[in-house]
Design a protein around this nucleic acid. Sequence first.
DNA 1: CTAGCACTTGAAGTGCGCTTTAAGTCAAGA
DNA 2: TCTTGACTTAAAGCGCACTTCAAGTGCTAG
Lengths: 148, 148
Amino acid sequence: MEELTIGEVASRAGIRASAIRYYESIGVLPQPRRTNGRRRYDKAVLSTLAIVRLAQQAGFSIAEIKTLLNGFAADTPASERWQVMSGPKLNTIDDLIAQLYVRKQLLEATLQCGCTHLDDCVHTPSIAEGTKQTGQQAALCTQQGNTE
Amino acid sequence: MEELTIGEVASRAGIRASAIRYYESIGVLPQPRRTNGRRRYDKAVLSTLAIVRLAQQAGFSIAEIKTLLNGFAADTPASERWQVMSGPKLNTIDDLIAQLYVRKQLLEATLQCGCTHLDDCVHTPSIAEGTKQTGQQAALCTQQGNTE
DNA sequence: CTAGCACTTGAAGTGCGCTTTAAGTCAAGA
DNA sequence: TCTTGACTTAAAGCGCACTTCAAGTGCTAG
């Protein structure tokens, strides 16, 4: 018993059979052998699906994962593939992290708000700039109180 | 000249007119006054749009922004709205940040990879677990070298 | 033999945040 | 007067990663 049905692969990999068919349809997974029209998988597909999951966690899109798996000359070593694919990703990730910290500061600033009307929270240039590009402190709600 | 056309609002707010119409259609913005069928805006809408932008930067979805703006009793102070809306968001943001660090570690691990075949990178339980739930170190590629 | 379940396909649907398109209206300048 | 450009609408489209649907086929147990 070396062969797996699509349902078995799905439950072992923790994904839906429909996802496996989808991966095949867009060329992420190769077309498997078939018996009476039914797909038959070698256990090796589980490793490939684990790579897919790993790459997703690393922030790769499905298109990028397709490239990682099938977009290189067959003899290209894994290490070289990762260099090509992960390098650029790693260059952008600190920006993403920084953005989340901006988001966090913004949320904390709103919790400090003492405004009556929402519009007041934004009537100061500092917040307008803070929300645009500059990673400046969001000096939310400098003028608290009644606008009515 | 106290009234603005949709085009003027759009250029001042740095968004497209189509976005403004969209916001109106889903109830984020109220319906403005009209002259000959054309929308006429009070400058106040610019503050509201600034709030929309601010809230987006803080990670709120459009549906949440709609709630923030129009989902409370009219006399609910801004400060209370922020408490209700930002509190839960802030509780989840550290998880998001942590996820990005996992992602970063994963990317760095792939750059250390010495595998020939991608499937090798994943043949060890440590990575399988690392990519599942536990925020453990991704000990990628324990067995480097030739699998052929 | 027949029920029932897993499988097959292509096409359409989902959710998000808009944008784009098509067809038409309105106001101002040459 | 005619043209130009900004506006109006409803409906469809986009990108992503799948899921769901409808209609049909195959395998297995009773």
